[in-house]
Simulated scan of single mutants.
Amino acid sequence: MKKISQHIYVRTLTESDAEALLTLERENRTYFQQFTPLVQDDFFTVPRQKERINRSMQRRAKDEAYMHGIFLNETDALIGTISLNSVERGPIQGALLGYVLDEKQGGKGYMTEAIRLIIDYAFYELYLHRIEAGVKPSNIGSIRVLEKTGFENEGLHRKKVKINDKWEDHYWFAIIHPDES
């Protein structure tokens, strides 16, 4: 799957992306740890990134999750990841959105473009009804991106995710398929 917008494209990651993924994770380790659960040091190796990519391909084959890289159109540089996780079929038809972006690329509209591409993919190719996303109240940039892309804040989940050994509150956002709202 490859989706293209004005400045970026998203596509499924392959094993050949492992080194670029590792570089992204290493260069942004401190930045990402503000918003995501801690990972062990062995996460920061090429074999672990290959394993991560292969696990994502297995989960895709089972219709459980869809992990994509975010790449710049001009250079094909990997600048982030965006995923649909915890896919539920049947009466739910939903998934959880997760994403990270290279700190140096923030504020340029790339994540807004990526989320719009993934929303389109989720609703019109995966036939999902609802996409949800959690975000720390202190992550103002992420909140703005979700709001710009049509997500609505549905409330606060107290002590929802353990980040850096501390249970953190998260606002819960959701977007409903526009043809089914």
Results as ranks from 00 to 15, higher is better:
1 M>H: 11
4 I>C: 11
10 V>T: 12
12 T>Q: 12
14 T>S: 10
15 E>H: 08
15 E>C: 09
17 D>K: 08
19 E>K: 10
20 A>K: 11
20 A>V: 02
20 A>P: 05
21 L>Q: 08
22 L>M: 01
23 T>A: 11
25 E>I: 02
26 R>K: 13
27 E>A: 14
27 E>Y: 03
32 F>W: 06
33 Q>F: 09
34 Q>P: 01
34 Q>V: 02
36 T>P: 05
36 T>L: 15
38 L>W: 06
38 L>C: 10
40 Q>E: 15
40 Q>D: 14
40 Q>N: 11
40 Q>K: 07
40 Q>V: 08
41 D>I: 05
47 P>A: 12
47 P>S: 06
51 E>S: 13
53 I>W: 08
54 N>G: 04
55 R>H: 06
55 R>Y: 06
56 S>L: 03
56 S>A: 15
56 S>Q: 03
57 M>C: 08
59 R>M: 12
59 R>V: 03
60 R>P: 02
62 K>L: 14
71 F>H: 04
72 L>C: 14
74 E>H: 09
74 E>D: 15
74 E>R: 06
75 T>W: 11
77 A>N: 13
77 A>T: 13
78 L>D: 07
80 G>E: 00
81 T>G: 12
81 T>N: 14
82 I>M: 10
85 N>V: 05
86 S>Y: 09
88 E>R: 05
89 R>Y: 07
90 G>V: 01
91 P>E: 08
93 Q>C: 13
93 Q>L: 10
95 A>Q: 02
97 L>Q: 00
98 G>P: 02
104 K>Q: 15
105 Q>L: 07
106 G>V: 00
106 G>P: 03
106 G>W: 04
107 G>S: 10
108 K>P: 11
109 G>C: 05
109 G>N: 05
109 G>L: 00
111 M>L: 15
113 E>C: 07
114 A>L: 13
116 R>M: 02
117 L>D: 02
118 I>A: 03
119 I>K: 08
120 D>E: 13
120 D>A: 11
120 D>L: 04
122 A>T: 01
123 F>R: 01
124 Y>D: 15
125 E>P: 06
126 L>T: 09
126 L>W: 01
128 L>I: 02
129 H>D: 04
130 R>D: 02
130 R>F: 01
135 V>Q: 02
135 V>N: 01
136 K>M: 15
137 P>G: 12
138 S>C: 04
140 I>F: 13
144 R>W: 02
146 L>E: 00
146 L>V: 06
147 E>I: 04
149 T>K: 11
149 T>P: 08
152 E>F: 03
154 E>C: 11
155 G>E: 01
159 K>E: 15
160 K>Q: 10
161 V>C: 14
162 K>H: 05
163 I>A: 07
164 N>W: 02
169 D>H: 12
170 H>L: 09
170 H>S: 05
173 F>Q: 00
173 F>N: 01
173 F>Y: 15
176 I>V: 15
180 E>D: 10
